[in-house]
Design a protein around this nucleic acid. Structure first.
Length: 528
RNA sequence: GACCCCGUAGCUCAGCUGGAUAGAGCGUCGGAUUCCUAAUCCGAAGGCCGCGCGUUCGAAUCGCGCCGGGGUCACCA
């Protein structure tokens, strides 16, 4: 709708137009303060300009009313337009709120180290990426989801060592000397027991078998992580192994050298990342010749860009923010546009339970498992809560609040509105299709407000996706559900002269709620 | 010290491409059920939008400077 209005305004105004929703709905559906900026250009009063614009816009069929008020131009869409749009949407549910943007995007997210199960912080990035991909796909983007598996390096050895020691201690009942650094937590003991079973006790006689144990444990962890993800409905198109990338390192290093991007100093190779805004140059090859973690990331992004997407989005934990400059620097050295890589940071999550704070630490093993929270509040509530706030701000929530079955639990609230519509159709003894072509003439102003709000879903999704602000979708759904609850309370539907029209309106509200929830990966309830 | 995020109602947070009277949920107090799901709805109380300066016709929103809170600053991954 907004696009249509915008196009019309552009026809009449040769100037960038800002279109917004008026504060007070009685002013109309859309408003523009354009006259204020035109006032300067034409050296006329904004009030006069607004009035002149109104005269021209009045002629447009799509508008029922165009008013000038204190310099604002307020626009109200015609009832015919809203009605026809609703009819079309109801008949084409799968097409509703779709877009036709043909851009391709490679979206990398989660990418948690395969050294333990996912915790609540990972869950946030996971949900965010998943929903971004769902909405993007709906809008027409070609989005592929990728998991970068950090399956190389010391941490994997540590995982193996931890399993090895745990097995010796708890299964083989040997005295064990724990080093300072190792992975703790119940999952290590579980893993150790299974490892002895799978690999045989003979692999635990001395440390020479640790690499083999590491490999085995890593695979198990990856399976576990995937189970965690599947539980909440998250799947990936690609997994890229960090280890496999180092085969290409020599080739990539040569390219960097050719581009003058690296130099040798103190027996190490450094990336001149300062040339592209980093605060200092970074080591990419150590003195002993082993490439650093950054080297892996450089190869990874080099290959990513070779794959030829229009845009690359990475969702990283906020603790990686210092990393952005180096990776972008490398991309620039390859002659690619670093702007094509966008990093979305996912900030910390603090969890409360009955107002008691939790602290999480993966090493210590007292972190909060994503799967525990899913078990406690369900995947839907978990998804929803992560989507109510921008990804790059801290989030705090109390799991007890999300277990409640009332207003304080937005998933319930929205589902309840959706279910009410279905129960109306049931009471009326009608199928949804029977009201699609019904005219909405004679409905109240409130009814049209509700209809208009229901039809806003497409622009909400677009706005949320383009600005990477998914909380706009949850806000919208709460708002729409609230409007419907009020409407339901105020208006009797079944058995009234307006039954058909009110059912059609309800069906449209349900459609937006359903499609909106689907974008969040939540299936709307038809009965509660 | 540098960089990132945050500071809006008692609490958790929306609102930030500048725009018309600053919003929601929870909590508090009061009300609505002979009627389609009261898992709902209505009302009230509650705000120097952290502070200051600047830009502007107009600032919660933009800029600069403070203050306060959180996070990150590996040749670990």
């Amino acid at each position: 709708m907004k696009h249509r209005v915008y196009e019309i305004l552009k026809k009449h105004i040769d100037h960038p137009v800002v279109l917004e929703k008026p504060k007070d709905k009685s002013f109309g559906h859309y408003a523009t303060p354009i006259a204020f900026s035109l006032a300067k250009v034409f050296r006329k009063s904004p009030i006069k300009i607004a009035e002149e614009l109104v005269e021209r816009l009045k002629e447009e069929e799509m508008f029922e009313r165009v008013d000038a008020l204190k310099g604002y131009v307020n626009i109200k869409l015609s009832r015919d337009f809203l009605n026809e749009y609703a009819t079309w949407a109801l008949k084409n549910e799968d097409e509703f709120a779709r877009g036709d943007i043909a851009e391709s995007i490679l979206l990398e997210f989660v990418s948690a180290n395969p050294t333990g199960p996912l915790h609540i912080g990972h869950a946030r990035g996971a949900v965010w990426g998943d929903v971004l991909a769902r909405i993007g796909k709906h809008l027409g983007y070609k989005i592929e989801r990728e998991y970068y598996v950090n399956d190389a390096g010391n941490q994997i050895y540590l995982l193996g060592l931890s399993v090895y020691l745990s097995a010796r201690e708890s299964v083989l009942k040997l005295e064990v000397e724990w080093p300072q650094e190792y992975y703790r937590g119940e999952y290590i003991a579980d893993l150790a027991a299974k490892a002895v079973e799978a690999l045989g006790p003979e692999k635990f006689v001395d440390e020479s078998f640790i690499p083999e144990i590491s490999e085995w444990a890593k695979e198990r962890m990856l399976e576990l992580i995937n189970e965690n993800l599947h539980e909440v409905g998250i799947f990936f198109d690609h997994y890229v192994s960090e280890k496999s990338l180092y085969d290409r390192w020599d080739e990539v290093l040569t390219r960097l050298a050719d581009a003058g991007a690296v130099y040798e100093k103190d027996g190490k190779w450094w990336l001149k990342s300062t040339e592209h805004g980093d605060e200092k140059d970074r080591v990419v090859v150590r003195e002993d010749g082993r490439p650093t973690y950054l080297a892996g990331d450089i190869v990874y992004h080099y290959l990513k860009f070779e794959r030829g997407y229009d845009r690359y989005i990475n969702i990283w934990g906020a603790d990686h923010h210092g990393y952005i400059a180096r990776v972008k620097a490398a991309i620039a050295f390859f002659g690619h546009d670093p702007q094509k890589l966008e990093i979305i940071l996912s900030q910390m999550v603090s969890l409360l339970k009955d107002k008691e704070p939790y602290k999480m630490s993966k090493r210590a093993g007292n972190f909060i498992l994503m799967s525990d929270i899913v078990e406690e509040i369900g995947a839907d509530a978990l998804r929803f809560i992560f989507l109510t706030k921008k990804s790059d701000t801290h989030l705090e929530f109390d799991v007890e609040d999300l277990k409640k079955e009332d207003n304080s639990n937005p998933v319930y609230y929205i589902n309840y509105a959706h279910a009410r519509v279905f129960s109306l159709f049931e009471k009326a003894g009608r199928g949804r299709e029977s009201v699609y072509d019904v005219s909405l003439d004679g409905l109240s102003e409130e009814a049209y407000d509700l209809l208009f709000t229901a039809l806003l879903l497409p622009e909400v999704l677009e706005d949320a996706f383009k600005n990477r602000q998914l909380q706009k979708v949850t806000e919208y759904l709460k708002h729409l559900a609230g409007m419907y609850h009020k409407f339901y309370y105020d208006n009797r539907v079944v058995g009234t002269p307006n039954e058909e029209a009110l059912l059609k309106l309800s069906a449209m509200v349900a459609l937006s709620l359903r499609v909106g929830l689907k974008m969040l990966g939540i299936e709307a309830a038809q009965r509660m």
